[in-house]
Amino acid sequence: MAASAHPSITARSTPALPAGRHHSKAFVGVPLVLGICYGLYAAFLTSNNGASNTRIMVESFVGGAVVAVLCFAVAAVQSRLPRELRGAAYGVLFGCAMGYLLSLSDETWLKSVFLGLFLGAAMGVIVFYVRYTRET
Rank of each mutant, 00 (worst) to 15 (best):
F27T: 04
N48C: 08
F61G: 07
T54D: 14
N48I: 07
A68C: 12
F27G: 07
M123R: 03
F44L: 15
A68G: 11
H22V: 07
A43W: 13
F94T: 14
S79G: 13
K25T: 02
R55S: 11
I126Y: 11
Y38C: 10
E135C: 02
S8E: 15
R134P: 01
A11G: 01
N53G: 14
A51I: 08
A68F: 11
A68S: 13
R21Q: 15
I9G: 05
Y41F: 15
F128E: 03
A11H: 06
M1K: 09
S24Q: 10
L93A: 07
H6V: 00
A75Q: 09
M98P: 03
A76V: 13
L85F: 09
C71M: 09
G50R: 01
N48G: 13
G120L: 03
P31D: 10
P31W: 02
H22C: 04
L45T: 12
G35E: 09
L45Q: 00
R86A: 13
A2W: 04
L110I: 15
G50L: 14
S103F: 15
G99I: 06
S79P: 00
C71A: 03
I126A: 14
L40M: 08
M57W: 04
T54P: 09
C96F: 15
S4H: 15
G99Q: 10
F94W: 03
A42E: 03
G120W: 02
C96T: 03
I9N: 00
R12I: 12
R83Q: 01
V77T: 05
V58P: 12
A19L: 07
S112F: 00
L119H: 06
V69N: 06
S47D: 09
R21P: 07
L45K: 07
S8R: 10
M123H: 09
R12C: 08
G95C: 06
V67L: 14
G29T: 07
I36Q: 10
R134Q: 05
S105N: 10
K25L: 12
L32P: 08
Y132S: 13
S8Y: 02
I126S: 11
A122I: 13
T136R: 11
R80E: 09
A73Q: 12
L102E: 10
L32Y: 05
T136C: 07
A2V: 01
H6Q: 00
A19N: 00
G116I: 01
A76T: 08
P15Q: 06
